[in-house]
């Protein structure tokens, strides 16, 4: 463990908590893409099946349980409890265009052709594009609530910090996982446009609104 990975995990945890609290306290999921949240629930489910097969550390196990629990709770709030506030018309990204190619790629390019490893690989590839429905929805509505931008910033920062973690681990441990690194680079690049808007607008106290 190094500080980049630790702060990456904490940023990820912050994003998950920020979103869950935002929906719970405002009793509304307006502006939130339920599709992205379903994809994240799939990401955690397929990646953390090793909870059933191996124990790495209390930190590892507890964080996985928190991620899975919060992501399912978020999906529940969006599609059940506060479904009246769900903006289905603007959450129209065709997720099958993500799941099918990612599934195919996971079967073709992986470290080991075993079920758990293919599911892990699928989860890594899916996570890199899981935010697209959310970014697409913001481009359609032309704006995002400030709390949603903080959620997105933490979500994007987490994998950016993981990239530094992988540089650190390669240099000090000789460890690298090309699949996670390539997917992590793609994932972080997808946030660049948002990062620019976040720094130039939200951090200056303005509302994030895209030229419609």
């Amino acid at each position: 463990m190094n500080i980049f990975r630790l702060f990456g995990d904490l940023s990820h945890l912050a994003a998950i908590i920020i979103l869950l609290l935002k929906i719970w306290k405002s009793r509304s999921c307006a502006g939130i893409s339920g599709k992205s949240q379903i994809l994240f629930a799939i990401v955690f489910t397929t990646r953390y099946l090793d909870l059933l097969t191996s124990f790495i550390s209390l930190y590892n196990t507890s964080m996985k349980m928190i991620y899975i629990g919060c992501s399912y709770a978020t999906v529940y709030l969006i599609y059940a409890k506060f479904r009246a506030t769900y903006d289905g018309n603007h959450d129209s990204f065709r997720v099958e265009f993500l799941i099918v190619p990612v599934g195919g790629l996971a079967v073709l390019i992986n470290h080991d052709f075993s079920l758990l490893e293919i599911l892990w690989t699928f989860s890594i590839y899916l996570e890199s594009v899981a935010i697209l429905p959310q970014l697409f929805m913001i481009s359609k509505t032309g704006e995002a609530e400030t709390i949603t931008t903080h959620y997105l910033f933490c979500q994007g920062l987490y994998r950016a910090l993981y990239l530094i973690n992988w540089i650190w681990r390669f240099y000090f441990e000789g460890f690298f996982d090309m699949i996670a690194i390539v997917a992590g680079v793609v994932q972080t690049i997808l946030y660049c446009d948002f990062f620019y808007l976040y720094v130039t607008k939200v951090l200056k106290g303005k509302k994030l609104s895209l030229p419609a």
Binding site: R5, D9, H111, D112
Partner: peptide
């Protein structure tokens, strides 16, 4: 090596 027998990252 490339084959990561156990993924220790979240």
């Amino acid at each position: 090596g490339m084959s990561v027998d156990e993924h220790d990252e979240l």
